[in-house]
Structures are given as structure tokens and as C-alpha cells.
Amino acid sequence: MRILVCISNVPDTTTKVKFSTDQKSFDDGGVQWIINPWDELALTRAMELKEDASNPVSNVTVVTVGSASAEPTLRKALAIGADDAIRVDAVSSDAYFVAAQLAAVAGSGDFGIILCGIESSDYNGSSVGGMISEIMGIPSVSAVSGLKLEGEEVVITRDIDGGREELSVPAPFVGVVQKGIAKEPRIAAMRGIMMARKKPLQVVPAADAESYTSYKEFAMPEPKAPCKMVEADNVKELVNLLQNEAKVL
């Protein structure tokens, strides 16, 4: 079974967010780019599955949609352990456009498991994974916090109201993963970084697809009112404020 992990190339999570002077686009000057944190967890789990010899996983491929500037992020994924990488040569305009590109890649290979993070830390769309599955007409499972193989059977754990459930899903399918799928993202070792340079990174042209949405403008949030401090020996006052001012109790 082959696994495809969809990677979003996002600004480092500590980035101070800035926009262009007309407020219409993200200002990426001086930004460090990373693998979207949840995609990194998905990749980590994919590697764990492949490395366990009892699993029938033959190959882990990573894919991203982006310009050549996204390639260092793909190389990082290869250094973590992916066998090969694909870059769809296009500027991502919206979630549907990106999902259409990824669905075209996913459909062109014999992938049994297609993994995406639950959202990207830049535009927080939580959309691409579900869209890929609907475009391809295959099952999807969301909020996946556990994924294992029992022979050829894929068994997934997800959170539900009041607890969690295990379910079985036929391949091919899209798994949209969240925290729990892997404990911590794997860090590339020096040997992995050396090997990554020689691993195949294929560039494919964009498929024809439209955009469903477009960002018109960005703004910083309104400044928050300063925190109201309450003395540690006056918990009564805190409860009073929560009840009568914030009205949240």
C-alpha cells in the first residue's frame, strides 16, 4: 500500500504576521517556512506505519502545491523519511483549487491512504482534505487521532461526543488528522538530510481548476482590552466579574 501525505508550506508558527501596505496580501518578507504542523504529524505517522514491517506499506510520497520556493519544505519532508516528493507547479489561490491539484496527483498514483492535516496554520481553511475526497468520490474520515493497519484493514480512532470511537474504512480514503495521530513530529537526522538530496522530487504542471473563493483584504484584530487583575486573596471578586460582567458562568 502506498501513502500520500499532503503538505502545506506555511510560515513558522512564531512569525509576526504582516500584510502588504494595501492589506491585500500576506507580506512574506523574512518569513521562515515550515511543514504545516498537522501535516508533519501525518507524515510522522506515515513513517511509523511504513517502518513497522508487519504493515503492508511500501512507499510514502509527499506532495505540495506551490512555486519552487516551496521545495526546501518538501526536502525537509524527504529528510524526515518520505521516499519521494511531488510539487505541483502552481500558486495556490484557494482551497478548491489546491484540492483539485492534489486530487489529480492522488488519482494518478495507486495511493491507498491519503493524509492531510486538520487545517493549515496560515489560512485556517480546514477544507482541503474533505474536498480531495469529494472530488475523487472516495471516503473521508476527519478529526483522526489514531491510525493503524490490521493486515490490509485500516482502523481509525476519532473523538466523538462523550468519548471516542474506532472505525474501519476501505482504501483508498482521505484521512484528515489532528493531534494524537503521532505523539510528536519527527525531526530529521543528519543522515536523513544527506539522503534527502538524492531522493526524487518531481515537478508536475497544474491541472485545470477554478477558484471558488478569493481573499479581498486582511486586517489585524482590534487591540484587546487590558487584562483585569484580581488579587489572589479575592477570588470572590473574580467569580463576581465572571458572573455579572463577562456573564460566562
Binding site: 504576521v17 500584510f19 489560512y123 485556517n124 477558484s211 471558488y212 478569493s214 486582511f218 486586517a219 489585524m220
Partner: peptide
């Protein structure tokens, strides 16, 4: 957007 660090206006096309 950006995990609450900013807001964006989205047009549905």
C-alpha cells in the same frame, strides 16, 4: 486567519 493573529475578508465567487 493565521490562528487568530489576523482577520481576512473572503469573497465567494
Amino acid at each position: 486567519v493565521f490562528s487568530g493573529k489576523a482577520k481576512g475578508k473572503v469573497e465567494i465567487l
